[in-house]
Design a protein around this nucleic acid. Structure first.
Lengths: 143, 143
DNA sequence: ATAAATAAAGAGTTCAAACTCTTTTTCTCC
DNA sequence: GGAGAAAAAGAGTTTGAACTCTTTATTTAT
């Protein structure tokens, strides 16, 4: 349903939201080691996050990624759109070309309900909500 | 969430359940043309269906695929298990190694609800229910 | 028996996601 | 301003799903 890239982005951005505040910066290596994500691959993903303004970064010694004004209040759906595009909104469970309420595949309604429920969650949940759960010890970003 | 193979299998088996009764046989080419599925690829999938006893087949002139006693009452979940294995039951939305109710990722509960709802539908719906919807014109297998 | 039709089987190709490696750019500290 | 640290960028590799092509086996009709 979601790409691995989305999972990596979500976990990394949440990690930065937690640890990359008050002038603290998280290096790519720190991120990839703490979250157990291949670091070159994560590099590409974080580039994209910076490009979209989800987090900020500085190069050079003591450089790294850090939270900005937007980081905490980013809805997860925005991350999904960046990593996976918006194909997920329209795609049919059976891969039929034309599938909609007027011309449904036999799984259209069941799948649409499931997918839309999930999208609703992603639209409402923000990075800071994720961070709060992790801080409270009620959810985990790794292992 | 599901492979294309599953969608192809579901549509093809349903088509056979509708048109391959009372001694009538559906050739691979008929199947692939009616459903607009690459026919060599569909061949492999139908082989697998025959191997698992979901439908029957005969070779030679006037050969093809046809429904057997089991076809109509096959739950969709059984097709899913054949085509996609049972990885889907355990996998986590964020691709975290250990993710369960005691050690959840931040999306665990939301995703589990969505996935389990979908699986419930697949466990209850059978091929004949799909066929009935298609026969009634309330659902479509193609385009 | 032979020929034709059809499923079955095997091997190969394509494509995109996931991942790796190398080089370049930018910045800081000395 | 030179060295080193770190992100950014580009190019390459791997892997598995999806798809194609060719050959073989089986059956029917004549």
């Amino acid at each position: 349903m979601f790409s691995k890239t989305f999972g990596y982005a979500l976990r990394a951005v949440t990690f930065v939201a937690i640890h990359g505040r008050d002038g603290k910066k998280i290096s790519l290596l720190d991120l990839s080691q703490n979250l157990e994500i291949p670091h070159h691959f994560l590099g590409k993903i974080m580039q994209d996050m910076v490009r979209h303004g989800i987090v900020d970064s500085t190069k050079g010694p003591n450089g790294g990624f850090f939270a900005n004004d937007q980081t905490a209040k980013t809805p997860l759906l925005e991350l999904l759109t960046i990593t996976d595009g918006n194909l997920i909104f329209s795609q049919c469970a059976l891969n039929i070309k034309r599938c909609n309420a007027q011309h449904p595949c036999p799984l259209h309604n069941d799948f649409a309900a499931c997918r839309d429920g999930m999208l609703k969650v992603l639209a409402v949940k923000t990075v800071e909500m994720m961070a709060a759960e992790v801080d409270a010890g009620t959810a985990y970003l790794v292992r």
